Amino acid sequence: MTILNDLRTTTRRSSDLSKHSADVFAEAEDHTVQITRRDGEPLVLMSQREADARAALLQFAADLITVTLDEEGTLASRMADRFPWMLALSDTDQATCARDLVDAARASFATGQPHLAIAELTSWRETATAIAAGLSARPAEWLDHDELIERP
């Protein structure tokens, strides 16, 4: 069993791939398909999207392991060194982000669902990018419909 075990894997014979390739390819777009062979080790067929998600999760795991092996500073400060976009967040948000990312990674590994960690990482990175661009949580000041605005 691998860390990135897919909960929805279908097993097909190699003859199915040659006789019913359209059906097998349609399955592989939805979930991983294991192709068994009489004369060799089974092969795995998956979408590029799934392969990319697994690669991204492994890279994220490598980053988290690197962060946890360092003993200097807080988890949030060590993660900000590895993910510089976190520096756009407040200290409180950095700590929350660090915890959320670790929790999402654990959930991804436990369930075999890479999108959980990748979505959390993307969400926090986009939040930091928006803050760096000057966007904030302050409510917008709306004008009344009948209020006239003079030209500058």
Rank of each mutant, 00 (worst) to 15 (best):
G73L: 11
R13G: 15
Q34F: 06
D30A: 10
L57W: 00
I65G: 06
A80P: 01
L75T: 04
S14M: 06
S21P: 04
D81A: 12
D52V: 04
W85V: 10
P84C: 04
Q94C: 01
E29G: 09
A76C: 07
L87P: 00
S77T: 07
M46C: 11
Q48T: 12
D63C: 07
I35G: 01
D63N: 08
A95R: 04
W85D: 03
M79P: 00
A76S: 09
A61G: 14
D93H: 05
A62D: 15
F25N: 13
V44D: 07
D63M: 06
A62T: 14
V44Q: 10
I65M: 09
S15V: 11
R37A: 14
D16W: 04
R8I: 06
L89R: 00
A76I: 00
E27V: 03
H31I: 03
D81P: 02
W85S: 09
D30I: 08
A56H: 04
D23E: 14
G40T: 02
L45G: 00
L45I: 01
M86S: 08
R12D: 03
E71D: 14
L57H: 00
I35Q: 02
L64P: 00
A28Q: 02
E71C: 09
R54F: 07
I65H: 08
R82N: 10
L64H: 00
R38D: 12
T9M: 12
M79S: 01
F60A: 04
P84I: 05
V44K: 06
L69W: 08
E41V: 14
A62V: 15
P84T: 07
A88D: 02
Q59K: 15
D16S: 11
L87I: 04
A26N: 15
D30Y: 05
M46L: 11
T10G: 03
Q48K: 08
V67C: 04
S21Q: 13
F25R: 06
E71K: 14
A88R: 01
A61W: 11
M79H: 00
D30M: 11
L58H: 10
A28H: 03
S47E: 02
S77Q: 06
D16F: 05
S90I: 09
E41G: 04
T66W: 03
H20F: 15
T32G: 02
R8K: 11
G73Q: 10
E29Y: 10
